[in-house]
Design a protein around this nucleic acid. Structure first.
Length: 262
DNA sequence: ATGGTTGTCCTACAA
């Protein structure tokens, strides 16, 4: 089985690219982030025509996450127990959705950006990650043999080699110790990075800013990850990042990350 | 050319 994750930066703007990607790589399940649409705006028909079922949550023009699967999709959960909210008044955002696809619980996550180290959004980001860890750890405690993959845009570069320049990121988000500790806590709860062993760095990235010619200059960040429970990790036979999808007209600023399961 | 982005509820804001 082949599972992928991709921050598409608008599913409507990226529709042709996404459906072509599914076909080109023979993808069974795709976790999508930043659909940037409400449920009623999601383009269900093109996916159904290609043989995929869709689970999506989108509340407005921001965020929005989905799972599309051609191997079944059941036990859909929007958000997760204890997921923090944002805004005034505080409301849940469309940043997590999960479903069981052919025996694997796929969780599509779009971790809050943080905006700046001092911004209230950073505290939200850290709380969100902490609550995700707690939820995932609890689930794993109850069902240690469950196949779970937490995949998506984590908005954290866990290691120095995951950014093109640590000097550039000094006093910026994504590389701060609290963010890295929050990411590490999820790993320490039993969810290992199943992609890095197959795509060693340095210089391996999943995101390149649209501005400043970051992609042609190879100035990116590795911030999109698939973290697997022990039972899931044991099935992983390979993984790759499709840099080709960052090229050309109409590209997302993120590249898809693909994993293969035995 | 001292800049050079993209998406959305599009001229503001998020990333």
């Amino acid at each position: 089985m082949r599972i992928a994750t991709w921050n598409v930066n608008s599913i409507r703007a990226r529709l042709d690219r996404v459906t072509a990607f599914l076909a080109r790589h023979d993808i069974d399940v795709l976790a999508i982030q930043e659909t940037k649409c409400r449920d009623d705006q999601f383009p269900h028909l093109p996916f159904e025509a290609a043989g995929y079922e869709v689970a999506h949550v989108g509340l407005n023009q921001w965020n929005g996450v989905a799972i599309v699967s051609r191997v079944g999709i059941s036990e859909v959960e929007v958000g997760f127990e204890g997921m923090p909210g944002w805004g005034d008044p505080v409301n849940a955002e469309a940043r997590a959705i999960s479903a069981v696809c052919d025996g694997v619980r796929v969780v599509s996550v779009y971790v809050p950006n943080g905006r700046s180290l001092e911004d209230p959004h950073m505290a939200y980001k850290l709380d969100w990650l902490s609550r995700l860890r707690d939820h995932a750890a609890t689930r794993l405690d109850v069902s240690p043999d469950e196949q779970v993959v937490l995949m998506g845009d984590w908005n954290v570069a866990p290691q120095d080699e995951d950014v093109w320049s640590m000097a550039f990121y000094e006093n910026r988000t994504h590389v701060s110790e609290p963010e890295r500790a929050a990411f590490r806590a999820v790993v320490d709860a039993g969810f290992s990075d199943v992609v890095r062993p197959h795509t060693p760095g340095p210089g391996v990235y999943t995101y390149w800013d649209y501005t400043q010619l970051r992609f042609p200059k190879a100035q990116g960040m590795r911030i999109d990850f698939a973290l697997g429970s022990p039972a899931l990790a044991a099935r992983v036979t390979g993984a790759f990042i499709d840099r080709e999808e960052r090229k050309g007209k109409g590209a997302s600023d993120h590249a898809p990350v693909i994993i293969d399961l035995a």
